[in-house]
Amino acid sequence: MLPSLVQRITQFLIPQQTYTTTRFHHLYSTLSIYDNIPKKLKKFERKPLVTSINELKRRGRQRRKERQNVKEIILQSPENGLLVQKLIPVAKQVYAARSEVLSSVSRLVNFIAIYSCSICGDVHVGDPPHKIKTCNVRGSLSSKEHSWVKGGIEHVLPLVESFHLYDRIGRAVSHNEMLLVDRIPAIVELCIQAGVDIPEYPTRRRTFPVYCVAGRIIDFEKRFPKDIYLEKDIEEYGFPYKKKRSDQDTNSMEMHCDDIQAVAVRGMKAWKKMCTGASKLMEKYAVQTCGYCPEVQVGPKGHKVRNCQAYKHQMRDGQHEWQEATINDFVPPVYVYHIRDQQPGKPLVNELKRYYGMLPAVVELFSQAGAPVEKIYGHTMRDVVVPDMDEEKWVV
């Protein structure tokens, strides 16, 4: 009699407890790893290669073999100096989308607070800042809590600069020309090389392709355009300086809209268009990045400026270790913590940090302003029910 009574009581109690525990167990176990988030590399680690080292060696052997034969090597656009005509509209869209993203962010930062840690550089979007103890760098507090200060646009959209090249297939910028060549945003330089004409940054547009014979580039066109005179506007190094760098970029245009949600929706669409278009351009127009530092150079080869201060830069005499760049090197996303339906006035706590999702800071800014988040961030958002502090013990 007693065993059967215990069995009936057990059958009545277990399902409810099992539901409570498995609910959080399922939510955490299936989404325990942040997908598609770039790993934060250590100082001595190199960025992963886009193309395998064996493929790079094979291409190098093929190029050396072709140079031994004195014959013309057929080059396709843009390697031959000509533009890819079908990508010119894409470049113009990316340039316009970048201006709209910066305009939207510059307006939203007046309504949504942005914080940055003065020690480690972590970023948080929203008020108040989180209490998660992840500040673990030299000089941080013993409690590993962040020292928050007010941030701005530069913390949400970090600026990545590149040397502006007058001739993209010409020689690389040397170390002595470091101060003679302007540095502009890398995405603007990519748009210029892909077909966007900006008067402040002149560039060479060829009408006839260059020729490659035995590995040497032969150009039969004139070196400089007719409207630029050698004795007045060209230094002996070969880089034109006939321009005035404008302090006001085209991205500073004002967006006359009082609806913050509408501004966020437009900014989110522009962000997606900018990233998608930049990825398409990078498939044809090469972008180089240093394997150990954030330096980026738009063009088929990197520059020769010896300003690398990363791991073992002494052995390279300050030269960068160039490799193929990815979209994360070109437009670096700053990931911040994200939860759905955050209660105002209550910060994120350290005990529940494994239940919080992550989003790029600019996407989180648009999301808090009311813009819907794209499905491509579904794996990192982790939009689940975050347990309360007293419910954490039920999580398996």
Rank of each mutant, 00 (worst) to 15 (best):
G139S: 08
R223V: 15
Q343Y: 12
Q7G: 10
A270H: 07
E221I: 01
G291R: 13
E221R: 07
I327N: 03
R382A: 10
Y241C: 07
K222F: 12
K39C: 00
S103Y: 07
S104W: 05
H320I: 10
K284M: 10
N176M: 11
K40N: 04
K131L: 02
D35L: 01
V125L: 01
K65M: 04
L108I: 14
A186Q: 02
L41V: 03
E189V: 09
V334A: 02
C308M: 15
A286N: 11
G170F: 09
D219P: 01
G345Y: 03
E351Y: 03
D127G: 09
L108V: 11
R98K: 15
V263T: 10
L41R: 10
P294A: 03
V296N: 09
C120Q: 00
Q62W: 12
A97N: 03
V331N: 15
R223N: 12
L75V: 15
F330K: 02
I234R: 03
G299C: 06
P48F: 00
W271N: 01
H313R: 13
G370Q: 05
S252F: 13
M282Q: 06
I217V: 13
P209R: 08
A371H: 07
D390H: 09
N307P: 03
K92Y: 12
S367K: 05
S29K: 09
L365M: 11
G378N: 06
Y311V: 12
D258N: 14
P128N: 08
M253F: 11
F163C: 06
V210S: 08
A278D: 05
I153M: 11
K243W: 09
A96N: 14
V298Q: 01
Q368P: 07
T18C: 14
R59G: 00
W271G: 01
S104C: 13
Y19W: 04
M274W: 08
N36S: 12
V213Q: 02
G121D: 00
H164A: 11
F24R: 08
A270C: 10
R266I: 11
Y19Q: 05
E45N: 04
M253E: 02
Y28F: 11
H124D: 02
K242I: 10
H338I: 05
E235G: 15
P129L: 02
F366K: 01
Y285T: 08
G139T: 06
I73S: 08
V109P: 02
F330D: 01
M253H: 12
V265K: 06
T289Q: 09
Q342V: 15
L2T: 15
K47Q: 09
T21W: 00
G152P: 03
P387Y: 01
P360Q: 08
K301H: 14
R316S: 10
Y292T: 05
S29P: 08
L281M: 01
R171D: 07
V181M: 02
T20I: 05
H175W: 06
K43V: 10
V385M: 11
Q85Y: 07
N80V: 14
P333A: 04
G152Q: 03
R168F: 12
T22P: 04
V94M: 09
F163Y: 12
K43T: 14
Q76H: 04
L102Y: 06
E351R: 03
E221H: 06
L352T: 15
T30M: 05
P332A: 13
R67F: 02
Q342L: 14
G151F: 13
I234P: 09
E72M: 13
R8C: 04
R382H: 11
R168L: 08
I53P: 04
H130D: 05
K273A: 08
K57L: 13
N350W: 00
Q297T: 14
